[in-house]
Design a protein around this nucleic acid. Sequence first.
DNA 1: TGTACATCAGTGAACGCGCGTTCACTGATGTAC
DNA 2: TGTACATCAGTGAACGCGCGTTCACTGATGTAC
Lengths: 218, 218
Amino acid sequence: MSWSKDDRDGPRGYHHGNLKEALLRAALELIAEKGPAGFTFAEAARWAGVSPAAPYRHFRDRDELMANVALRGFQQFEVALRRAWDGGRPDALTALDRLGKAYLGFARAEPAFYSAMFEAGIPMSASPELRDAGERAFTVLRETAETLCAQMSPKGRPPALMVALHLWAMAHGVASLFGRGDAARRSLPMSPEELLEANTLIYLRGLGVPTMPSAPQR
Amino acid sequence: MSWSKDDRDGPRGYHHGNLKEALLRAALELIAEKGPAGFTFAEAARWAGVSPAAPYRHFRDRDELMANVALRGFQQFEVALRRAWDGGRPDALTALDRLGKAYLGFARAEPAFYSAMFEAGIPMSASPELRDAGERAFTVLRETAETLCAQMSPKGRPPALMVALHLWAMAHGVASLFGRGDAARRSLPMSPEELLEANTLIYLRGLGVPTMPSAPQR
DNA sequence: TGTACATCAGTGAACGCGCGTTCACTGATGTAC
DNA sequence: TGTACATCAGTGAACGCGCGTTCACTGATGTAC
C-alpha cells in the first residue's frame, strides 16, 4: 500500500508497475459506464494501456476480476457504514439516520461497486476473503440492530439479527429501486433519503424504540 | 389470443406461425438460465429453431425484445398481486400477508421476468405500454396502502403513496437480497417469507394500524 | 561492486468463435375479382 | 370456384467485429555469490 509513484502516471517502460490496481480501476470505470455486464477483459486491458494477454498474469478470468471488485466494494462499504454509525453517537437514532444516508450515498456514488456486490450474481462463496468482507460489512448493521434492541423493553424484544436484516432489506430496497444513477431509476415524489428515513422511523416505532429523543411531543 | 394449435409443436413448414411468442419464451428461458446479460438475439433464434435473421421481423433489436419481456412481466405481476390482494378480503392484514407472499413467489418463480423488470436496466420510458404496465402493477400496492391508511386515525395519517413505496421497498429488498433462486442468494436463518412478514407487521404497528384483528391480547 | 542467472510481468501475433446485421431470395398466406 | 397478385415471414449466406485464450518471446527486476 506504499506506492511512491502516482498510480495515475500510466504504463512507463515495459512493466506497468501496478497493473492489478489499474485493471480493477478500469473495471470500476467500465461497470459504472455500462453496467456489470458491459465490461470485458479485453476492454479493461485496453483501458489500462496493456496488451490483451497481460490481465491473465493477475486474474484467472473475468469472474475473478469481478469478485475482486466486489471484495474491494465490501471493504469500502464497511468503512463507510462504520464511519457513519460511529458507535451510535450521539444517540442511536441520529446515528441510524446517518447510516441510512451513507448506505444510499454509497449506492449512488459507487454504482459499480454496488452492482458488483449485489447484482452481478457473484456468489459469496467465490472466495473466503469475499465472504469475510461481506460479513464484516453486515456486522455494522448487526451492531446497529443490537444497540437498537438494547433500548427496547426486554419482553417481546425481537432477535437483533432479524432487525439487522430488516434494516438491510429496507435500505437495499430503496437504494435499488430509487437510488441509482442509471436510466432505469424510478422517479419519486420525494428523495430516496427521505423515503428511507421515514420507512426506518415507522419501523422503529413499530419495534417500540423511542423515536423522540429530545422534545417530548405527546 | 386464440391459437388453436399448440404453441409447443415447433416450426412446421416455412412459416413458424408464432415466432414472436416463441422468441419471448426463449428469452425467458435463457435469462432464467444465465441472467439478464447472458442471452443473445442469435441464441434466442436458435432456441426457437429459426434462422438468425428471422427475429428482425419482430423486434428491432435485443433491447426491444427485452422491453417486451419486461412488459409481459409487469402484466403477469399485476395479475398475481391483484389476485393475492383480492380486494383486501377477508381483512387487510390477511390480504397483505398474501400479497407479500405473492410478491416473493413471483420473484422466485419468475426470476427472468423479475430481473427484466427491475434489474436489466430497461428504462420505463422505453415505451408507453411498458410504463403503463409498470404503473398498473404499482397501483395494486397503492390501493393496498390506501386501504391500510383508511384504518388509521385521521390525524398523523401518512400519505398512502409513501406507504405504498415503503411496502414496495421492503418486498423488493427482501426479494432481491434473499429470495432469488440463483447462486448469489444470501443464506438466511429464516425464510424470506417470514422475514418479510415480520418486517411488514412491525412497520404496520409503527403506522398505528391494528395488527391483532381477532384475539384481543392486551 | 560487479556479474550471472532466475524469476517475473508484459508483448504481439495468432486462433477459433459467436455475435449482430445486411441482403437478395423464396415459400406460404390472404385477397380481389 | 378459380386465378393472379400483393404481402408477409423466414432463409441462408455473407460480412466485419471484438472477444477470450494460447503461445513463444523479451525486457526488467531482484538476488546469490
